[in-house]
Nucleic acid binder design. Structure first.
Length: 925
DNA sequence: TTGGCTAAGTCTACTTTGTCCACA
DNA sequence: GTGTGGACTTTGTAGACTTAGCCA
């Protein structure tokens, strides 16, 4: 096919060849390059054409071949009509050459050929197989394709960089979104404390009496959130896609509780409510899926691309998130129909049958696990040391499989399920783990841990799997926040293994820490104030023991008893309060230590780029020019042959002058830790011994020193009231440390004049530089004087300021009076002129003057009074000229006639009036 | 898909210590 | 005659940093 523009081209290939041959001697090199480029481009095009025609256009080609005769006829007509000398078989090469040019200039467009605008194309001959053959023959015979070399050179795409303003806006949006999500999490956490919801959930279980056993607690976790082995929590609640309908958190939970169907957030929150109803210390944990911190950055869309073909709801619903083989996968969430069809049939594929098979085994395993395994495993260990997943033990730890065949079958099944799970994750067909629960499980000697519990997916202690699942779902694990007691705590480090990657995507830590600071206290108070299993068990025992005692003083005792009236209860409250506080601080600090330990024991990255901004490690190649490693060691490892050092070894070097600003000076005899060479482009010459001339370039060296080479600044002390000054007769006050001993910095305006008047020695205090008039200029603020003169100068300064203020006030008053006098004088003069010339032709200017007077007379009421004086009014009304009998010609000479005579306070006045209406009022002497 | 490398654009820190003239 | 204060004009550069593209 040919484009319209192509059909209008005046030159045929033959003509191009002629031109090429004519210009060949002028650019032999270019021709060689062009021929190579042409050959490559045509080769690529041929591949593409073959591929395209073989795969896509075969059917169409058959139709075209059947109509080949007709098309050739029309092509001949076309050739005759255009009048171009297209040889047989050259139309197609030209066509290909055109495509080759397009392809060479923009290879990416190749994929979008189908999207070409139809208007750009006209009906033409379809290249048939025979024509292809001809084309190849022609190609072999030396036909080449010319194209503009400027379009075929590989060019980088123009890089669109965000400006500082865009970055700032993006940061604002990021922060705002973060705060919104933080607020949302707090609301949801608050809703989890709703007693109605908790009671409603409690009504579904009936083993509260056996709760107070850590062994039972673990078992409860394992069997699926208190709903029994056959009726697990995540089987009981259906997870559906995120609802866009605006619902309050309470109503969302209530609705989910009633319909047994809700969003992942609501289902996770219900599990929190359930645990809290059971008096377990529980947090509602959420990934704050906030918009990117970078402009035009990736928005964490809740839907993955694959889902678009089968409907967005499929993958927006939370399904299994863990990669491992899972019994819960087999007995997975009762999902909506599309979920079952979408995932079990597509993602799992053949493994769906495996899943069905394992479902039966899984249930058996669950049963066996919940009854046997926990009792054996948890009898001695309170905290589940290995990650406990209800899915894993069911296949691995069954005692019933003893025979070799059974073991082989087990391994095969495990491998199949692993492959299924990996495939599932690889194809991004899992729901994003956005919400889960953390339950504090206390161990011996107050050593406890927060246990990850995902009620939606039926996973316990799977914190190490969250990151992988989030990555698989294109979710960024930037902020993982645990909510409790209206507070919040950042627990991201518990769930991420590569903190250096996460930290780069987070907002600056100071702002985030400031936001979370008050929330951390609330969270700490709530989680510490809650009851862990150990504490609860002991408290429960105490309650039972004290029931008898309570009956003595008449207090009704329940688990939340606190009358506060009786002495025992008061003491118990105080004791409990202090215990809770200590428990909270201990628990919180222990968790902080744990998170900090995780951060400090992060594994070494395997790529060099990661060391550029890594908080813990560094390699020497990424050091800045003013950084060195001191001490250079220890070597923690190697990355691509580069030694890895702790980041703490990195020292920042500064010049002597820079250290002075820090209040430090370089020790005598210290050799620069690093010497920088830089070219001198400024006209000012440095001292000759500081300059070097190398390779004809005028360079200067900059000696840099480390902090270990410095000592506190020793400035000469002020003696006999004389301030030590620098070579410019000033004192550089970068900070208080830069003040000579015995001096003080008086940062007051006009204080220098006071010191000078008192004949006290002082020095101007230079506090920095500012750019004025295109160059930097020192910035002075106040003076530096000896300490003993401080009070005298301040007292004199106050007196001088009072005197100056009084003088200024007096000057202002005089100036105000003068301006009032000028104003009134001008008004009177103007009014007099107005009364004289205000009629007739001068009426308009008079009005304008009055308008301008009005603008400035808002504060001059007196002036308005004068303007509105009786005499003026009389003039305005009585002096209004009569309508002239006839309009005189322009530029006529006034002929005044004595109109009337009046007498005023200032004497008799007379008015002369011309017949044109112009009048003159004058006073008679 | 990941990592190494590079190009290119953006941002940031560094630099640094006047002169003339009107007016009080 | 002298001191004071305002106007003048509005940098330039190197290097760090970031990001996208290319390639292995």
């Amino acid at each position: 096919m040919r484009t319209r523009s192509q059909s209008k081209r005046p030159q045929s290939v033959g003509e191009q060849e002629d031109m090429k041959s004519r210009h060949a001697p002028e650019s032999i090199d270019d021709n060689e390059t062009l021929s190579n480029i042409s050959r490559d481009a045509v080769g690529k095009l041929l591949k593409r054409v073959n591929k395209g025609f073989n795969k896509e256009n075969v059917g169409y080609l058959r139709q075209c071949e059947s109509a080949a005769t007709m098309e050739r006829g029309s092509r001949d007509i076309d050739k005759r009509s255009t009048g171009t000398a297209i040889e047989k078989g050259t139309a197609e090469p030209e066509c290909y050459g055109r495509e080759a040019m397009q392809y060479a200039s923009n290879p990416e467009k190749d994929e979008d050929d189908k999207d070409y605008d139809d208007s750009e194309w006209e009906d033409g001959s379809i290249p048939t197989l025979s024509s292809m053959k001809d084309f190849q023959e022609d190609l072999a015979s030396g036909i080449s394709v010319e194209f503009d070399v400027s379009h075929c050179l590989p060019k980088r795409k123009p890089v669109r960089r965000a400006t500082a303003e865009e970055k700032e806006v993006a940061e604002f949006v990021h922060k705002a979104h973060l705060l919104c999500l933080l607020g949302r999490g707090r609301l949801m956490d608050c809703a989890c404390n709703d007693p109605l919801i908790q009671d409603s959930e409690m009504s579904n279980i009936n083993f509260i009496n056996i709760l107070y056993s850590k062994r039972m607690f673990i078992m409860v976790l394992l069997i699926g959130m208190c709903y029994g082995s056959e009726k697990t929590f995540h089987n009981n609640f259906h997870v559906r896609s995120q609802s866009v309908a605006e619902k309050s958190c309470h109503s969302a939970l209530a609705s989910t509780l009633e319909t047994r169907e809700g969003t992942p957030e609501a289902v996770a929150a219900l599990s929190v409510a359930l645990f809290r109803a059971l008096n377990l210390t529980t947090r509602f944990v959420s990934i704050l899926d906030v918009v990117s911190l970078k402009p035009d950055g990736e928005l964490s869309e809740p839907i993955v691309e694959v889902g678009s073909k089968r409907g967005r709801d499929i993958f927006s619903s939370s399904t299994l998130m863990v990669a491992g083989p899972s019994c819960s996968f087999a007995s997975s969430v009762k999902s909506p129909p599309e979920v079952e069809h979408g995932i079990s049939q597509t993602a799992a594929g053949g493994a769906g049958r495996q899943a069905d098979k394992s479902k039966k085994n899984g249930l058996q395993c669950q049963d066996s696990l919940t009854i046997d395994e926990p009792k054996e495993k948890m009898s001695d260990v309170a905290v589940p040391e290995p990650p406990i997943d209800i899915s894993e033990p069911c296949l691995v730890k069954s005692d019933g499989l003893k025979r070799k065949g059974d073991l082989e079958f087990q391994m095969q099944l495990e491998m199949a399920l692993s492959a299924t799970a990996i495939g599932t994750i690889g194809s991004k067909k899992v729901g994003a783990p956005l919400y889960w629960v953390e339950v504090f499980c206390c161990g011996e000697n107050l050593t406890g841990k927060w246990v990850h519990v995902d009620a939606i997916n039926g996973i316990v202690d799977g914190e190490h799997k969250v990151e992988a699942a989030a990555v698989a779902c294109k979710k960024s694990l930037r902020y993982v926040v645990a909510f409790a007691g209206q507070g919040a705590k950042d627990v991201t480090r518990r769930y991420c293994t590569k903190w250096y990657k996460v930290a780069a995507k987070r907002v600056n830590s100071s702002w985030w820490d400031a936001v979370l600071a008050p929330l951390r206290e609330l969270e700490s108070g709530a989680t510490g104030g809650g009851v862990n299993l150990e504490y609860e068990a002991s408290a429960h025992e105490k309650n039972e023991e004290s029931q008898v005692a309570n009956s003595n003083h008449g207090c009704s005792l329940d688990k939340n008893h606190s009358c506060g009236a009786c002495k025992e209860c008061s003491e118990k409250q105080v004791e409990g309060s202090s215990m809770r506080k200590s428990l909270a601080s201990t628990r919180s600090s222990l968790e902080d230590m744990e998170l900090e330990t995780r951060a400090l024991t992060e594994p070494l990255p395997t790529n060099q780029q990661a060391y550029r901004n890594h908080q813990l490690y560094v390699i020497e190649r990424w050091l800045n020019k003013n950084q060195v490693l001191y001490p250079k060691g220890p070597v923690l490892g190697f990355c691509s042959g580069h030694a890895v050092y702790p980041r703490t070894c990195v020292q920042t070097l500064r010049t002597k002058e820079r250290w002075l600003r820090e209040g430090l000076q370089v020790k005598a005899g210290e050799v620069p830790a690093k010497v920088l060479k830089r070219s001198l482009k400024r006209g000012k010459e440095e001292a000759p011994d500081d300059d070097i001339y190398a390779d004809g370039l005028h360079q200067e060296i900059t000696a840099l020193y480390g902090r270990w080479q410095t000592e506190p600044l020793h400035l000469p002390r002020a003696v006999n009231g004389i301030v030590p000054k620098n070579e410019r007769g000033r004192v550089d006050v970068w900070s208080e440390k830069c003040l000579p001993p015995g001096t003080v910095h008086l940062r007051l305006p006009r204080v220098a004049a006071v010191a000078r008047r008192l004949d006290i020695d002082y020095a101007s205090a230079m506090v920095g530089f500012e750019f004025r008039n295109g160059r930097s200029a020192p910035l002075f603020e106040g003076i530096v004087v000896c300490t003993e003169f401080k009070d005298a100068i301040l007292q004199a300064y106050l007196e001088e300021e009072e005197r100056r203020e009084a003088e200024e006030k007096r000057r202002n008053e005089v100036q105000a009076l003068s301006r009032w006098y000028q104003l009134l004088s001008s008004i009177i003069t103007r009014q007099r002129l107005n009364s004289c010339y205000g009629a007739g032709a001068l009426s308009q200017p008079s009005t304008e003057i009055r308008k301008s007077d009005d603008k400035c007379s808002t504060s001059a009421n007196r002036a308005q009074e004068i303007v509105a004086s009786p005499r003026c009014q009389q003039d305005d009304t009585s002096e209004k000229p009569d309508v002239p009998p006839s309009m005189p010609e322009e530029n006529h000479e006034h002929e005044f006639v004595m109109d009337k005579e009046a007498s005023g306070e200032e004497g008799p006045t007379q008015v002369k009036r011309c017949r044109c209406g112009f009048s003159v009022q004058f006073e008679t002497l």
